[in-house]
């Protein structure tokens, strides 16, 4: 094995160690959060407030975690694997030697990500429903906005990964991008809890729209700006992200 591949492997593990561990943990980690924060910490929250946004804290958290997990899956699958495809394993340049185009590559990749997100989400909903954290049917419906959320991140992260030379940029993306979004975009608490000046910033984050949309579908409520607005924003983000990814692939791979 050459050094850069080793470095990559290590960095990949570094990132995975922090964020996803493995496929196993991309299925299991959300439940650990759901049980620890939703059930146990939730019991304290409910005691004090009688519930959040009109439901128990567990029911509030469950769809939020669904969207956040979708984000992590979408972003994770578009980070290291994409950089590896371009640089280390060079599967993308190899694919381009066939009649495939860069657009095919990006669309194929996003389709795979969508599948992964859908799979992770459905399993999550089934277990969450079994725990009484989500109604089953509405929960399954909420998989749709979750997949949109995952893809909104997948497009941009694919583009970002395709601009990089090494893994440090990705480590920083997760440390300073994905992680703060996970913690501050309405997954764990309504953004009205944030200091006033931070609220408008949350509106700008894609995850907040994903969380609101997923939560409103799961709980059967009306999201702050209306279903259509949030959905359109996510879809617009997917299209822009994918287009940027295609452009960057072209720039990077046809040299």
């Amino acid at each position: 094995m050459n050094t850069s591949l080793r470095m990559y492997e290590r960095s990949a593990r570094v990132y995975k160690g922090v964020w996803r561990g493995s496929v196993f943990s991309s299925f299991v980690n959300p439940f650990l959060y759901l049980i620890a924060m939703g059930m146990f910490l939730g019991s304290l929250v409910d005691e004090q407030t009688g519930g959040v946004a009109g439901v128990s804290y567990l029911e509030f958290l469950a769809p939020g975690l669904l969207a956040a997990t979708a984000m992590q899956t979408g972003a994770g699958d578009s980070a290291w694997p994409v950089l590896a495809g371009i640089k280390w394993q060079r599967t993308y340049p190899a694919a381009l030697a066939s009649p495939l185009t860069t657009r095919d590559l990006v669309i194929g990749h996003l389709a795979w990500v969508a599948t992964r997100v859908a799979l992770v989400s459905v399993i999550y909903v089934l277990v969450a429903a079994a725990l009484g954290a989500m109604p089953l049917i509405d929960g399954l419906l909420a998989v749709i906005p979750a997949v949109l959320t995952g893809l909104a991140f997948a497009g941009f992260v694919t583009w970002f990964s395709a601009t990089l030379e090494d893994g440090i940029g990705l480590t920083n993306l997760f440390r300073f991008g994905i992680m703060p979004l996970f913690l501050f975009s309405g997954t764990f608490f309504e953004i009205s809890q944030l200091p006033d000046w931070m609220e408008p910033i949350a509106y700008l984050t894609p995850l907040w729209h994903g969380v609101e949309l997923t939560r409103s579908v799961a709980l059967g409520t009306e999201p702050p700006f209306g279903l259509l607005v949030h959905a359109s924003i996510l879809i617009a983000l997917i299209i822009i992200g994918a287009a940027m990814a295609v452009r960057q692939f072209r720039k990077r791979l046809y040299v």
Binding site: M37, L41, V45, Q48, T49, V52, Y57, M179, P180, L183, F184, F188, F189, Q193, L194
Partner: peptide
Amino acid sequence: FYLFSIGVGLGGY
């Protein structure tokens, strides 16, 4: 990040 999110944000409830 955890301190400000879980500690401050969620702690508000």
